[in-house]
Design a binder for these strands. Structure first.
Length: 600
RNA sequence: GGGGGCGUAGCUCAGAUGGUUAGAGCGCUGCCCUGUCACGGCAGAGGCCGCGGGUUCGAGUCCCGUCGCUCCCGCCA
């Protein structure tokens, strides 16, 4: 870090000193990290953003400062002046970047004293997350979280630098905008100027960036806040940040190549080594079949295999019922010897596990020299057993796990099972990372419940194929997946108003409806829209991955809890009756229940 | 909306089968200590066992409800 401008508080950073500074006068400021009071000499580790510096208070050389030093407590804020001195060789602390020197303090001023913190700042112990969030200012002082803040900054700075070098314009788009149903639930903001109407917070800047292409911006990006009123997950927050990118006159390879360069740089800034691009591209159907996921974790094997045609005609009713209807598949994975070592109880638990994904059960089949060591084995011919073993690469001592169900259910259940067992068996080598594009998505999937086609990506994605046959349409879309996280996704967009209308029709949006909701886009498309495409990345996820964190909450300075509340500010909270009146809003349920959020 | 895990000292946790004064480490307070760096030594304070109800002679422990955290399913174009 560059030296701070010298003033009454300090003229240097704590973390910047080394043996070369010996005998230099210095003034530093920061927080008391730890104290070691010997009654005589007192040591204080002083912390600022740059790091730690040991201060020494000698009773005989600076009696006044030494007197004060006895009163210092962790997290007190002080400014200290003195001389940088070289430590005797036996007193050097190799753990500390500044460990060869210390500041012999002659003068100290306490700027603020601190209550005892509710949790330790000087060690990285696990602390209840509500407590951390309620005292986020203290939590962010902790080394790990301070590093996450800095990491996030470096990631975003690298993105800006890369895109700036390539002539992208950073453009802001509205936060107060219009609700465009479809997709996630919107956050709504009542409009005072027009009672009974509402703004919506953007789920993404999708339509605006397309308008920017029509405007001739050619190359756009934005660090964009997005809002989706859906339940959270470890990798999902109601508000999150995307790197949003759009380009004109491009095809898939233009976007993919640009992004490979961008992400390769961003990830190496974060210390994550990946092979040099180009990166592998996995067709969506293959990802679903082999890994049971559209964001496969490729760091380990245990691939899923479809064995439907191999077990066709067996005497096992469960399989035959599924296969006979033509609506189902039989798939399996090889859980290996570690799978075979699972207890009866553990195998029973796997049934409950797959039931969460809609599957009825998973059938375990131990592989032996003689065939399959299960009372179900008798239903299968020796040829079937051999064929399945061969496809799954099974040898005696392995355990095969089968799921028979609709293809989507079998994929989800076995995909989740694969991840669970992969982690349980420690199959992911530490430090290993795998990146892959997922491409060749279907344009639509059929929603049984709603009885209509739904876009897998979004309805602005350009389809290829015959629009009259929605089920066969492909989407010009691409997702980037790292270690089982979906990091980003994008597509080549529709630039023809006619095609756009047809896609709306296919998903049950009439021309009239389309005009009402998306008229501003359809209108703009009529005035000369360039072919264009782009992508958006989840910055919170990228930072979490780079920081080795399980949850994006650790990548966000002030996140919400998993239930969408903010223990720091108490949001969401009730508002004054008067505010509601001004907005023309009346609460249907009367006054809200005031929850005791965060009470322990 | 549903399922799993969790809630005991400021923090992190232990408290089989219900049993009498609820423990540990760290932190905190006081005293001692002139080269520590997770300093050390002595002494001490600190508990609505998340909350409410129930069973019982007796509940941190069992039952019901509720609140909160967390992971997952649904949801997330």
């Amino acid at each position: 870090m560059k030296p701070p401008r010298a003033n009454g508080y300090r003229d240097a950073w704590c973390g910047g000193f080394s043996a070369g500074d010996t005998d230099a006068p210095a003034r530093v400021a920061g927080w008391v990290h730890r104290r070691r009071d010997h009654g005589g000499v007192v040591f204080i580790d002083l912390r600022d953003r740059s790091g730690l510096l040991q201060l020494v208070f000698h009773p005989d050389r600076a009696p006044e400062a030494h007197q004060l030093a006895h009163r210092l407590r962790p997290e007190d804020v002080l400014s200290a002046a003195g001389t940088i001195v070289r430590r005797d060789p036996e007193n050097v602390n190799p753990q500390l970047p500044t460990g060869e020197v210390e500041l012999a303090v002659s003068d100290v001023e306490i700027l603020s004293d601190a209550d005892t913190p509710p949790f330790p700042i000087d060690e990285e112990v696990a602390v209840d997350e509500v407590l951390r969030l309620r005292h986020r200012a203290l939590d962010l002082r902790r080394e790990g979280m301070a590093e996450m803040l800095a990491l996030r900054h470096r990631v975003i700075a690298a993105m800006r630098a890369y895109l700036d070098e390539r002539d992208f314009l950073e453009v802001e788009t509205p936060i107060l905008t219009r609700s465009t149903p479809e997709g996630a639930r919107d956050f709504l903001v009542p409009a005072r100027i027009s009672p009974g109407t509402f703004f919506a917070l953007p789920q993404s800047p999708q339509l605006f960036k397309q308008l920017l292409m029509i405007a001739g911006a050619e190359r756009y990006y934005q660090i964009a806040r997005c809002f989706r009123d859906e339940d959270s997950r470890a990798d999902r927050q109601p508000e999150f940040t995307q790197l949003d990118i759009e380009m004109s006159f491009v095809e898939e390879d233009d976007v993919i190549e640009l992004i490979e360069g961008l992400m390769h740089r961003v990830l190496s800034v974060g210390g994550l080594g990946l092979p040099a691009p180009p990166w592998p591209r996995l067709p969506h159907a293959e990802a679903m079949e082999r890994y049971g996921s559209d964001r496969p974790d490729l760091r380990f094997g245990m691939e899923i295999h479809d064995v439907s045609e191999l077990v066709q005609g067996s005497d096992f009713k469960v399989f035959e019922n599924v296969l006979g209807s033509g609506a189902g598949v039989v798939r399996a994975l090889n859980a290996g010897p570690q799978g075979a070592a699972m207890s009866r109880h553990e195998l029973d638990e796997l049934n409950e596990f797959v039931q969460a994904y809609g599957a009825r059960a998973t059938a375990p089949m131990p592989v032996t020299e003689e065939g399959w060591g299960s009372n179900l084995a008798k239903f299968f011919s020796p040829e079937q057993v051999a064929a399945v073993n061969q496809r799954l690469g099974a040898s005696p001592g392995d355990l095969l796990l089968f799921v028979a169900d609709r293809a989507s259910v079998a994929a989800a259940a076995l995909g989740a099972l694969r991840l669970e067992l992969g982690h349980r068996f420690g199959l992911v080598p530490a430090g290993r990372h795998q990146v892959s594009w997922v491409v060749d998505f279907p344009m639509f999937e059929y929603d049984e419940a709603e009885g209509r086609w739904d876009p897998l990506h979004h309805p602005f994605t350009q389809p290829t194929g015959d629009l009259a046959d929605p089920g066969a349409l492909r989407a010009r879309a691409y997702d980037l997946t790292i270690d089982g996280w979906e990091m980003g996704g994008g597509s080549i967009r529709i630039h023809s108003p006619e095609v756009q209308r047809e896609v709306f029709r296919a998903i049950g949006i009439s021309d009239q409806e389309a005009q009402e909701r998306f008229g501003f886009l359809l209108d703009a498309l009529r005035y000369g829209a360039p072919p264009h495409g782009g992508i958006a990345f989840g910055i919170d996820r990228i930072v979490a991955l780079l920081g080795g964190r399980e949850s994006i909450r650790d990548a966000i300075a002030f996140p919400k809890t998993a239930s969408g509340l903010d223990p720091l500010t108490g949001a969401p909270a009730a508002v004054d009756e008067r505010q509601l009146r001004e907005l023309g809003v009346r609460l249907a349920g009367g006054a809200p229940r005031t929850g005791d959020a965060g009470t322990r």
